[in-house]
Design a protein around this nucleic acid. Structure first.
Lengths: 209, 209
DNA sequence: GTTTAAATTAAACAAACGTTTAATTTTGCA
DNA sequence: TGCAAAATTAAACGTTTGTTTAATTTAAAC
């Protein structure tokens, strides 16, 4: 039987890497414990990816792919600016919640060693998403539906809010008053709550009075 | 002559630690390069702080101190909710921009190894700030000045926006279209811009129409 | 069934890690 | 000046790090 449980060793390594990098950081994760948890010999990491550094780059390439297309499709739809904004929030929250481990990894890595090639690689990916969202807001402004707000920082608020919630589930649980031992911040209930808040705030901020 | 340039070795270590932890992360910074940059023997870190782990804890204790008092003072002032909100934004942005290295460190560390004592220590500090801001908004709601918004997530948006801007100065520079090689995201001009955006958005979000 | 390449392994590699030791220098005080 | 405590040093400690090696097993093709 072929199902999701049956992963080849390369995929197995990538999956465990995402989990451990999210939990302990890139530097904080040793290739040995990674291999152990993936039920794989230590040498397999070098064999498949070349090095630990290239492993995380492969992970980023893998996850960053689908994102931009969906955003582009959104901009080409026939929806109104407000509808697009709501769809954007739904999509973005959905995406980050589903891949919260990955987003924790890149949010951490982008804050490291400022002008390394690594930082630039991630920045490039994030910037493409950023530009698509920017188009959406500028279009709404052009149509006189949205106010003349600070577009760049408005996007920073949108992204920043979701990042904050996902950043530390322990901290987020304590913020919204749920028991970190019993509940997860990633449950459907809280996802809806984040969507509602962002739509609410973004509309209050963007729509003309 | 006694001035800021004359630091004893303990202070020197703390200062360099903040710089390197912000740039390369806690795990990514070796005690040896830290000592070298601080013009200090390697053994001095153990001598003054006991261990690398206790060094970063000392750094957190040092920087986290003054923050809560200022927030408390804000809540006890005779200002209106809107005035308090504006003062809060000014103070918070000022604070994070001034200590952007430190904030990068804790924002990264809190996203690591979920339920370690370390994560809980930082969460406790951040939660105290959080509760003070919550009081401010709840007070505004009680006085019927503020709308019935999602208080917790509104604070997440406030904090998340600033964190995003400070997180990676390279990424932020590219977002707001300035040259990362010539300009810094931490200049007065951009600080003002962030303050303006946050006041604008928070008022649009919180005030009754 | 034999052959060839790919996959997998245990072992070893040098380098870097955080920390400790034991000796030496500096400092403050009587 | 003399003495005890504090500060500072170079060297070494045992681990752990990421990576490589060379041998072995597995799989696929002929």
């Amino acid at each position: 039987m072929v199902n999701k449980m049956v992963l080849d060793k390369r995929e197995q390594i990538l999956e465990v890497a995402e989990e451990l990098f999210a939990e302990y950081g890139f530097e904080g994760t040793s290739v040995r414990e990674l291999a152990k948890k993936a039920n794989v010999n230590v040498a397999m990491v070098s064999y498949y990816f070349g090095s630990k550094e290239q492993l995380i780059k492969a992970l980023i390439q893998l996850r960053a792919g689908t994102f931009k297309q969906t955003l582009e499709a959104l901009n080409n739809d026939g929806h109104s600016p407000v509808e697009k904004l709501n769809l954007l929030v739904d999509f973005y929250v959905e995406r980050v919640f589903t891949h919260h481990r990955f987003h924790r990894v890149i949010n951490r890595e982008i804050s490291l060693h400022q002008r390394s090639s690594f930082n630039k690689t991630i920045s490039d990916i994030l910037l493409k998403n950023f530009e698509e969202i920017k188009k959406l807001i500028l279009d709404g402004q052009k149509k006189k539906v949205f106010r003349n707000v600070d577009v760049e920082l408005t996007i920073a608020s949108l992204i920043g809010t979701i990042s904050k919630v996902v950043q530390s589930s322990y901290f987020s649980c304590r913020i919204i008053n749920i028991d970190p031992d019993k509940n997860s911040i990633f449950e459907e209930e809280h996802k809806k709550r984040v969507k509602k808040h962002l739509k609410d705030m973004m509309q209050a901020h963007l729509l003309r009075k």
